[in-house]
Design a protein around this nucleic acid. Structure first.
Lengths: 178, 178
DNA sequence: AGTTACATATATCAATTCGATATATATCGG
DNA sequence: CCGATATATATCGAATTGATATATGTAACT
């Protein structure tokens, strides 16, 4: 599954411009899949060439022409076939947790700040997701929002209950450095 | 923070070959940061050029020469300075959850399988992490293993309790298709 | 004895993707 | 009136992945 396939998926919900597709990635998929213009625009070009989407241009005065993409029948079939494959393993990248790996080399104050920031960002995620969760009527959206909330909540709880472990390591190093 | 910096970090634990550094990424950082040979070997070359690591070659009969890298004093200072910056936001990519976004278009049997597989992979993660957690003496390692276990456990619990929501959507679609 | 799979060890390459940047304008709050 | 945000396109260098190539040892299985 690549950006191309997910662009097709987003277009099953209705026609959209590249700009709107980018927004859909952020708003609907952002939690577990993101894509940049640098991958979306080339993807749409390729999809158009392959006949999986069609594109009509709406000229606008004083703005770049709007290119509205629609999924074709061929595109729908390709999308469904693609989605029937086995999804790749999940990938998670956290510079914060990588930083904590080296807590014994860093100032305790920095470790504390990094953890504070992470907890705050999780809390902000949860607030946004809670708001969305209430608005959405579709079960799918609710399920996915709920997933995000459940996981982030568990992360916060663990961090708060166990941060002293890693902060102790950093403190030890601080004393050794003196 | 990039692969270069994390190679330096891994070398603070002791000298290593590129192959061993790759293993360290998998074994120690794998949960929250991974890197491939295609990024590790170029990173080590650059670090050597910049004088942040030194490299001695150990010739081995019937094997490629082993290149053992050591972090230099300059490398240690550079690493510490790098780690004091603010870590980038976390990134998570899940093709499985992206698939679920389109549950209303897919066969219920496929949705069920995809969820089963995800739960199984989480369970396997937890088992591996539990084993490691017991072995490790360092608080840092325990903290990070514990984090992984806490988060994956919450994910499993949520999935098991709420999967019926999304499976219902897929079933609806199945009936509509008939 | 043979074979299959995995571990050691290096390295490169096409393809993908990110993050930043460029270009223009509208709109809205302070 | 100004600065921030939104609309809308597109490209480019740099980083990264995942696959592949090359060799061999070693352990387990048949």
């Amino acid at each position: 599954m690549d950006v191309r396939t997910l662009c097709l998926g987003i277009l099953t919900f209705g026609d959209a411009t590249g700009y709107e597709i980018k927004k859909a990635f952020q708003d609907r998929l952002g939690m577990f899949y993101d894509a940049s213009y640098g991958s979306i625009y080339p993807a749409l070009n390729k999809l158009t060439t392959d006949g999986l989407v069609s594109c009509r241009t709406k000229s606008q005065s004083k703005r770049p022409d709007k290119k509205i993409y629609s999924i074709t029948l061929d595109g729908q079939l390709t999308f469904l076939k693609e989605m029937e494959g086995t999804p790749a393993p999940e990938k998670f990248k956290s510079e914060t947790l990588a930083t904590l790996m080296f807590a014994h080399l860093l100032p305790a104050s920095h470790i504390a700040k990094v953890i504070d920031d992470l907890i705050e960002s999780y809390q902000s995620n949860i607030e946004i997701l809670s708001g969305e969760c209430d608005m959405k009527q579709a079960l799918t959206d609710r399920f996915l929002c709920g997933y995000g909330i459940a996981v982030k909540s568990a992360a916060i709880k663990y961090m708060q209950e166990n941060r002293h472990l890693i902060e102790a390591e950093a403190l030890l190093a601080d004393h050794a450095a003196e």
